[in-house]
Design a protein around this nucleic acid. Structure first.
Length: 665
DNA sequence: TTAGGGTTAG
């Protein structure tokens, strides 16, 4: 790029009068309503260059326009060559030319060229121009380091809010948020102009490092400058408080905001969804829609859909799908992925597959969602098949989550050899992959291999690994090994009540009631509180929740009566309720076990509330116990309905007396 | 010239 230096700057005219009779805007710019394709743009550029050669004298404005056109189309090579031509024809660059060429050299990654431009800016007397100066700061910051940019910045007299903010952004890009915050404080000390973007950058830095106190200080500065309710600033403050986990500050600000835009609502909804506040998220989403001023956009939709999936709110999800179709968001890849995921998690794998098969473009997330969806629904073989299909498509990348999905699929289908193969494909397996490998061996009943693998990788103290082994013991009725693992869990994690529940259940299943009582006392004495089991069902746009032995539902009497009738029929048909609790983390009150478990109450409510033949969809926060699993199988056959129960690990499709999980519960 | 929000596991 030494050509740049070959044109002596001092020979360039200081000013240049326009000498054109053509319409310069029409030459390069279409009217706003005309959209051009890349091929058309290239054709236009060729014509532009031709005209360029025909016209003997061009002014800086026209050259800048051409440079801008190349820059907009991302053709940085042409920006630089056009600039060289400009210089060789004796046209003088101005304060609009240099920032564009500096920007191009930054994209080009050419620091030497940047330095030449820096020298030219000096010679042309343009270095103190704020646009030129800021673009040089950015160039040095990205191609060298933020410290170099800062050195240049500190030496210069022409600093303003933009250049300070640029510097702060450069430090953020280097993952040094505290430097960005220090810069902001310096700006305040030096009484520099504080604008909304400077505040937004500093607030973002606080959020990135969860520096709540700094965030509050900067909030105060925003208030002093009258910018607290600038929509950019207040949204950044909202995000910062959410990032710092201070929902109280966030809600306080949100409630005081005189104006909220779709980003304010989406941020808050997203926070609740991510942190398990599903009902609050759905409430906010409804409130926003009822206010009527703002309409959800694709980002809002992608934020709320996981909430529907999480609680199997299939109707809510379907309504949102309708909204997506009505508003033509259905060609947005991320929305499509979120829809597929929502249907998978709502128990409607067929609807998920329908969308997936119609997607014109699929990315890694689309494939991963469906592969893990198959496992969730007990169809591991199909999941492995889909991974193979994805594997044949070289344009789709795979990440650790994709491998998690395929290992899960292998484990569900007990495809040990395939699982081994895929595990060996992972260059840097994470703990999740190790856990899945152990689960795969355990579920296939290969306990010796599992033990060797655990010992080889020194995983015997890992809680997730032990729980994966315990799953295998559950399936293969490995009582002794199971008990040993539970005892290990209690030793390693003495404050987790669920471990004692497991142990208590083990003793209960062996009718060692003294030990059961002793463990219950231990749990009480230690002040531990085992998780309460809840099941819920969506009916007429409301979520109906049931706890163990719950009698609070308005239709409680009918629910229990129906359940008692069903249990009676079960006995009459010769079925014995199984009270095997061995490895289940659903203890609670055993006296409720016969009819009072939350999933059975929810199923009974579903049966008496919905019309005959309708599928019943239930979600549960804990594992379904063996006894309820057997009952649900019986009920599905007796009433001729499909009952879908989602627990934290898997979907159970009960139909005609069978379950899709093949009794892995 | 600087600037705020989204999907997959656990």
């Amino acid at each position: 790029m030494d050509l740049l230096l070959s044109t002596p700057i001092h020979r360039l005219p200081l000013t240049q009068k326009p000498n054109h009779t053509y319409d310069r805007h029409r030459l390069f710019n279409n009217p706003p309503h005309v959209r051009t394709t890349t091929a058309e743009k290239n054709a236009h550029l060729c014509v532009a260059h031709q005209l360029f050669d025909d016209i003997p004298i061009w002014d800086t404005f026209a050259w800048n326009n051409l440079i801008q056109t190349h820059l907009t189309s991302g053709d940085v090579g042409h920006v630089i060559s056009t600039y060289q031509q400009m210089l060789s024809r004796g046209v003088r660059p101005d304060n609009h030319t240099l920032p564009r060429v500096i920007c191009a050299s930054r994209h080009y990654g050419d620091l030497q060229l940047g330095k030449q431009l820096h020298a030219q800016a000096f010679k042309l007397g343009l270095f103190s121009n704020l646009y030129v100066f800021t673009s040089l700061i950015e160039l040095y910051g990205i191609l060298d380091s933020a410290d170099t940019a800062r050195w240049l910045h500190d030496k210069s007299a022409c600093r303003n809010a933009v250049s300070w903010t640029m510097l702060a952004k450069l430090y953020l890009m280097e993952d040094k948020p505290s430097f960005s915050i220090d810069l902001f404080y310096q700006m305040v000390e030096l009484a520099a102009d504080i604008d909304a973007v400077a505040l937004a950058t500093a607030i973002g830095a606080c959020g990135a490092r969860k520096l709540l106190q700094h965030g509050r200080n900067i909030h105060h500065v925003a208030r002093i400058h009258g910018l607290e309710f600038d929509i950019l600033v207040s949204n950044c403050l909202l995000k910062m408080y959410l990032d710092c986990g201070s929902i109280k500050d966030a809600r306080g600000l949100f409630n005081r905001m005189p104006f909220r835009d779709i980003i304010s609502w989406t941020d808050l909804i997203h926070f609740y969804v991510k942190n398990g506040g599903i009902n609050e998220a759905l409430k906010l989403f409804r409130q926003m829609n009822m206010d009527g001023e703002l309409k959800p956009d694709p980002l809002t939709i992608s934020s709320i859909l996981p909430a529907c999936g999480r609680i199997t709110a299939h109707k809510h999800g379907r309504e949102i799908h309708g909204y997506v179709l009505k508003n033509y968001f259905d060609d947005n890849l991320i929305v499509q992925n979120a829809l597929v995921d929502m249907y998978v998690k709502s128990g409607c794998i067929q609807s998920a597959l329908k969308i997936f098969s119609r997607m014109k473009e699929k990315d890694m997330v689309s494939w991963t969602v469906v592969i893990s969806g198959y496992s969730l629904h007990g169809q591991g073989k199909l999941g492995v098949g889909l991974f193979r299909e994805m594997d044949r498509n070289f344009s789709v990348h795979r990440d650790e989550i994709t491998y998690t999905a395929v290992l899960q699929a292998c484990s569900t289908a007990s495809m040990v050899e395939e699982g081994d193969f895929y595990f060996n494909c992972i260059t840097e397996p994470t703990m999740a992959h190790f856990v899945l490998k152990v689960a795969l061996l355990g579920r296939a009943g290969r306990f010796n291999e599992a033990r060797t693998f655990v010992d080889k990788h020194k995983l015997d103290k890992n809680l997730e690994i032990l729980r994966a082994l315990l799953d295998g013991c559950r399936k293969h009725h490995q009582q002794k090994l199971g008990k040993r693992i539970i005892e290990q869990l209690c030793d390693l994690e003495p404050l987790n009540a669920e471990n004692y529940v497991l142990l208590s259940n083990w003793y209960a299943s062996n009718e060692e009631w003294e030990m059961v009582e002793k463990l219950r006392k231990t749990i009480r004495d230690m002040g531990l509180r085992p998780k309460k089991a809840y099941s819920w069902m969506e009916f007429r746009n409301k979520i109906h929740a049931f706890g163990t032995g719950d009698v609070s539902h308005p239709r409680s009497q009918a629910i229990y009566w129906n359940l008692q009738c069903l249990m009676k029929k079960m006995e009459e048909d010769g079925f014995k309720r199984n009270t095997d609790f061995r490895f289940h983390d659903v203890d609670e009150e055993r006296e409720c076990a016969l009819i009072g478990h939350s999933e059975l109450l929810a199923i009974s409510f579903g049966l008496i509330s919905t019309e005959a033949g309708r599928t019943i969809r239930i979600a549960k926060n804990l594992r379904v116990c063996h006894s309820c699993h057997e009952s649900a199988k019986f009920i599905s056959n007796k009433v001729g309905r499909e009952i879908i129960v989602k627990d934290p690990y898997v979907f159970h499709h009960f139909k005609d007396g069978r379950c899709s999980c093949e009794d892995f519960c």
